[in-house]
Computed example of a mutant assay.
Amino acid sequence: MKDILGKIKLTFGVTFGILIFIVLIPISLIVLPFLTFENQKLDKEYQEFLNNNNGRKFFCYTSRKHVFDFVENSLLPSIANDINVIFLHGKIPKSNFPERFISRMLYRINNIGFPNIMKIVDGKVIDISLKKEFYEELNKDAKVSRITNFINLGFQIIDDNKNSL
């Protein structure tokens, strides 16, 4: 009796799985082109954003408590005015630019770790993580001038190497 009940459950499960598969195939064939088109459209808009903002510099930091306090109170007043600030609150970027483009930019960075500096050069984002240098300095005596020097040096490295990238 137990064996028959197990076979009935197995048969029902397999049949149900096949029916779900048969229903989902046509739905996915209908939806997939729309998703692909929307992604291509967003890629094109993102590339336009990069082209329109060529040369812009960004400084991105996170909401980690001791980092946030130091950056907000000490570092931000000292960084150059031409550097755009991105505050990454969890996974949501806060800046003066459209969130969807900044999210895409952050998703595609090559050097993971925050704080991070980025510059748009010839339609591409070049980034440098300052995590190691920042935390070493923060664990010492956290001199703002040394951290701003790291930021400026990072942008200088990007400028010096942009032709070889």
Rank of each mutant, 00 (worst) to 15 (best):
4 I>H: 08
4 I>V: 12
6 G>F: 13
6 G>R: 12
6 G>K: 10
8 I>S: 01
11 T>K: 13
11 T>M: 10
12 F>S: 11
14 V>A: 01
16 F>A: 13
16 F>K: 04
19 L>W: 05
20 I>M: 08
21 F>T: 08
24 L>M: 14
25 I>L: 11
26 P>T: 06
27 I>R: 09
28 S>F: 15
30 I>N: 09
32 L>A: 15
35 L>C: 09
35 L>A: 11
35 L>F: 14
36 T>M: 08
37 F>R: 13
40 Q>K: 15
41 K>T: 12
44 K>I: 04
45 E>N: 03
45 E>T: 08
49 F>E: 12
49 F>C: 08
50 L>R: 07
50 L>C: 08
51 N>E: 15
51 N>G: 07
53 N>D: 05
53 N>Q: 04
56 R>S: 09
56 R>E: 03
57 K>A: 00
57 K>F: 01
57 K>L: 06
58 F>V: 02
59 F>K: 04
64 R>L: 06
66 H>W: 11
71 V>Y: 02
71 V>F: 07
74 S>N: 15
75 L>G: 00
77 P>R: 07
79 I>Q: 04
80 A>I: 01
81 N>Q: 11
82 D>Q: 00
84 N>E: 09
84 N>L: 07
87 F>L: 01
87 F>A: 07
90 G>C: 10
92 I>E: 15
93 P>T: 11
96 N>D: 15
97 F>N: 04
97 F>R: 03
97 F>M: 04
98 P>L: 02
99 E>Y: 10
100 R>C: 12
101 F>T: 03
103 S>C: 05
103 S>R: 13
103 S>V: 08
105 M>R: 04
107 Y>G: 07
109 I>L: 06
110 N>T: 14
110 N>P: 08
115 P>C: 02
116 N>Y: 06
117 I>W: 05
118 M>R: 05
119 K>S: 12
122 D>L: 09
125 V>E: 01
125 V>W: 02
126 I>Q: 11
127 D>V: 02
128 I>M: 01
130 L>D: 02
130 L>A: 05
131 K>H: 01
132 K>S: 14
132 K>N: 15
133 E>N: 12
137 E>K: 13
144 V>R: 09
145 S>L: 07
146 R>E: 14
146 R>F: 15
148 T>G: 09
152 N>Y: 01
155 F>V: 02
155 F>G: 01
156 Q>K: 12
157 I>D: 06
160 D>P: 01
